[in-house]
Design a binder for these strands. Structure first.
Length: 530
RNA sequence: GCGCCCGUAGCUCAAUGGACAGAGCAUUUGAUUGCGGAUCAAAAGGUUAGAGGUUCGACUCCUCUCGGGCGCACCA
């Protein structure tokens, strides 16, 4: 990538300057290269001169000039380099380099942007993990699409990714018992019209259950089956592993985890219950692992579950949770230390989705909008864009009327339209032209700008694989589509000039590839016609 | 009370400590007898909640205040 090469150039220039005593000796800090927003400042820019000015005991401008003079510019990549105002060094990519990239994209096709950052590394990413007590709601849409997109990006970055969904279905968990009480008419915690209908459909009243847990488990399985069907067929999200809480019990993994903690003297008894010493790791208080009744808490079950993941030697374990689980983050981070996990445990919290008018998104009747309802209303592609364009930290206020109104003007169509338009031109051109394309003909400002956007794709993958800020993807897709539409407006693809036509056909073909790769990351469909 | 998150254009949201805080929608205006107008070009819209501090440089980091959300179970 051009960016890496520029970083190398800068580093060498500083070292050279130090050898020639033009700069004094000091350790070179990390060299940051970014894309300036304003095009007059070049395609890449670095602030390194300003960062080292103080250590070098020179003014930022002087340092920038010294570095610039030492730069051994590779004319294959760079056109010119400039020093400007406070001390930035700005790099302009050469036309030649840009033109060459079109060919490379065409050669790589779907593989374009495939990186090797994660080579030989495994990542486990767990998301959604909705309870088998009801359908997925609009709040869970965030984790669903974010997780799916992030998993796609990590795979594109070269990691081996395992997508996992955890189902809290243990018969002795309180939520399953509570669900069972609803079935048996002893409680109403989960009662609503849909559930009543479901119970009627499956004739649960005629069945005899030994316990609340049995009843809840039975209904839970029915609900879970529906949820899984919805996720796989409607959301089009594919999980590699559907982990079951009940399996942790079957294989006595809770006991094993418990004993491991006990062995390290991290457990003690108080008021009849067994407590975990999270305070030893800086927590405000300790937490109960086993109740006075002897039954394990969710914490112990989650520890057993995470131990299982840690044991599988993932270099990263990513959990995507709702905001209501934020209090659980510190505990699990402490647990990772207790269990001696050497990889990264990254826990990402999705902020809440609130309903317009300040209503809380609760499962109580009338206050829940299911994810399915939203998708039926606006469509999958719009829904995905709608969620993905926002940072996880944003607290969304949801209004179905507004979502619907915005959906008609959603930028996702703008992106898809670019792809459809290219497809249309390619159909019309139908040039089975095998002659050598002269990429040097791609010289128009709009053409070069479009190529500039195309080659940014790899950097987008790399950055996002590192910082998980997936909103970068839809933003990039929109910018890319914009660059194409501008090009289309300014440059006629099919014309009497055969040479130019084939060069431009190559360019839009490359654009089509990158658009498709980008939409694929987001799980948005790639239409040839609209 | 304590912990985590948030406050940016009329609305919905962006912005690895960088240059003039950007998009989409809404508003106003202009463009093609068109390889798809679901497009392109432009205008207008901001004291980044407020006050200090750190820095060559702060929407971003630190402190305080105000406002909002979510947690703080022997629920999950």
């Amino acid at each position: 990538m051009a960016k890496e090469k520029i970083i190398n150039l800068i580093e060498k220039a500083i070292q050279q300057a130090q050898e020639e005593k033009k700069l004094m000796e000091f350790e070179i800090p990390e060299i940051l290269v970014e894309h300036p927003e304003n095009m007059e400042f070049g395609d890449f820019s670095t602030n390194i001169a300003m960062r080292i000015a103080k250590i070098a005991k020179k003014s930022p401008m002087d340092v920038a000039e010294i570095i610039n003079n030492q730069l051994v510019v590779d004319s294959k990549i760079l056109g010119k380099v400039e020093v400007s105002k406070p001390g930035f060094i700005n790099f302009f990519i050469s036309k030649r380099y840009l033109q060459k990239q079109v060919k490379e994209i065409l050669e790589k096709g779907d593989e374009f942007g495939q990186l090797e950052i994660g080579k030989n590394k495994k990542i486990n990413i767990e998301f959604i993990s909705g309870n088998p007590t009801g359908p997925l709601h609009i709040g869970q849409g965030r984790g669903a699409f974010f997780g799916d997109c992030l998993a796609n990006i990590l795979r594109k970055a070269g990691y081996k990714v395992v997508r996992e969904y955890f189902i809290n279905n243990a018969k002795n968990s309180n939520q399953i018992k509570e669900l069972g009480k609803t079935v048996l008419g002893k409680g109403v915690s989960y009662s609503n019209d849909e559930l009543k209908e479901l119970m009627k459909k499956h004739k649960l009243k005629n069945k005899k259950f030994k316990s609340d847990g049995e009843a809840g488990y039975f209904l839970g399985q029915i609900i879970q089956k529906q949820n899984r069907n919805f996720i796989e067929n409607k959301l089009k999200i594919k999980f590699d592993n559907w982990a079951l809480e009940e399996d942790l019990y079957k294989d006595s993994k809770l006991d094993k985890a418990y004993k491991l903690l006990e062995k390290q003297d991290l457990v003690y008894k108080k008021d009849g219950a067994e407590w975990l010493k999270t305070t030893k790791f800086g927590d405000k208080q300790d937490w109960v692992l086993k109740r006075a009744t002897g039954s394990p808490t969710y914490l112990l079950s989650d520890i057993a579950y995470h131990k299982d993941k840690f044991d599988k030697k993932f270099s990263k374990v990513i959990d995507i949770w709702g905001a209501d689980h934020q209090g659980h983050v510190f505990k699990m981070k402490a647990v990772a230390k207790m269990l001696g996990y050497r990889g990264d445990l990254d826990i990402l919290i999705c902020q809440v989705v609130r309903l317009k008018g300040g209503l809380k998104l609760s499962k109580r009747k009338g206050q829940i909008i299911t994810l399915e309802e939203l998708i039926d209303e606006v469509g999958m592609d719009v829904a995905r864009y709608f969620y993905l364009v926002k940072s996880l930290d944003t607290q969304m206020e949801f209004d179905m009327a507004l979502a619907k109104e915005q959906s008609e003007k959603n930028p996702v169509y703008y992106i898809q339209y670019a792809h459809a338009r290219i497809s249309s031109i390619l159909r019309k051109a139908s040039i089975k032209d095998k002659r050598v394309v002269d990429y040097k003909l791609l010289d128009h400002k709009s053409e070069l700008n479009l190529i500039n956007q195309l080659i940014r794709f790899s950097e987008i993958i790399e950055d996002t694989a590192n910082d998980y800020q997936t909103q970068r993807i839809p933003k990039y897709a929109t910018e890319l589509a914009n660059a194409f539409h501008q090009f289309y407006h300014n440059c006629k693809v099919i014309s009497d000039n055969k040479e130019l036509s084939s060069a431009r056909i190559a360019l839009i073909d490359a654009t089509k590839i990158v658009l498709k790769n980008t939409l694929d990351l987001m799980g948005i469909t790639v239409p040839k016609k609209m």
